[in-house]
Design a protein around this nucleic acid. Structure first.
Lengths: 137, 137
DNA sequence: AGCAATTTAGTACTTTAGTATGAGCTTCAA
DNA sequence: TTGAAGCTCATACTAAAGTACTAAATTGCT
């Protein structure tokens, strides 16, 4: 925010200086009107694009789906449970997850069961859907 | 594309007319140089924003996750199979999907089984993952 | 009309998923 | 050090999911 203010202040200052400069050079007859218009056109064209790009970037970053870590905590998901949830969402079976995390299938079943309760889901597919809706995966 | 060309042609034409107009009014001394500069600045500022917005929209539509209908066809998914896939992705069980679409669970099982083969998935959770990766849901 | 693809449905089975419960182990804070 | 929380694992179930057929009805297209 502070950066934005400084940048804009400097920009406006630069423009005022430019305008004064152009006015004097016009009066002294060194430059043709056409050139002045062209310079102004190009500068403001650039400013338009620049400002617009800034605005759109801000929009994008706010729209972009970021993982809601606070929500994970609120749901009471433990580290391991969350890990298992991620693997479930990637389409793995309990056995595959067990192999990947070097534990038994029973353990994964326990974790998945706990995740389902905490997410208030009936099935793992529903857990995936809910997780995506809550931006936790 | 044709629209773009027409719009730009008209825009350039309008600008040329404007420039000529400004030149003559300047010569006749009706307008002050400051105002002319201001008008040009505003116009090109607007053009800059407009063009940039167009460009970004195009970028976004290519980045934005839109359903890849061509891919659905390529995979050979039938209308009904795709419908079932969507329900699966929303976290419903076979029985729930059956009730929703007014058919038997057997039918849904058949559809799901076909979808799994076509998506090269072992489980419905994997089918969801693959579908999202392919932007077909 | 006739063929191909789609949709529907069933049976019979195997495999996964999910629940319930109990229990051992570790960690970390009160 | 005691207790809560987390991770682990097991057993014994029940419930879904998924496979492999077969087959009839429907639809779309030539």
């Amino acid at each position: 925010m502070k950066k934005t203010i400084i940048v804009f202040s400097l920009l406006i200052l630069a423009l005022l200086v430019l305008f004064q400069f152009i006015k004097y050079t016009l009066v002294s007859g060194d430059l043709q009107t056409e050139y002045v218009m062209a310079i102004i056109a190009i500068i403001f064209f650039g400013i338009g694009i620049f400002i617009n790009k800034k605005a759109q970037n801000k929009q994008q970053t706010s729209v972009k789906k970021e993982i809601n870590y606070k929500k994970i905590e609120d749901l009471g998901l433990s580290k391991r449970e969350y890990e298992v949830l991620q693997q479930v969402a990637s389409g793995l079976s309990n056995q595959e997850i067990a192999d990947k995390l070097f534990v038994s299938e029973s353990t994964i079943k326990t974790h998945v069961s706990n995740v389902l309760v905490k997410l208030n889901a009936k099935r793992r597919t529903q857990a995936i859907q809910i997780s995506k809706a809550l931006n936790i995966i």
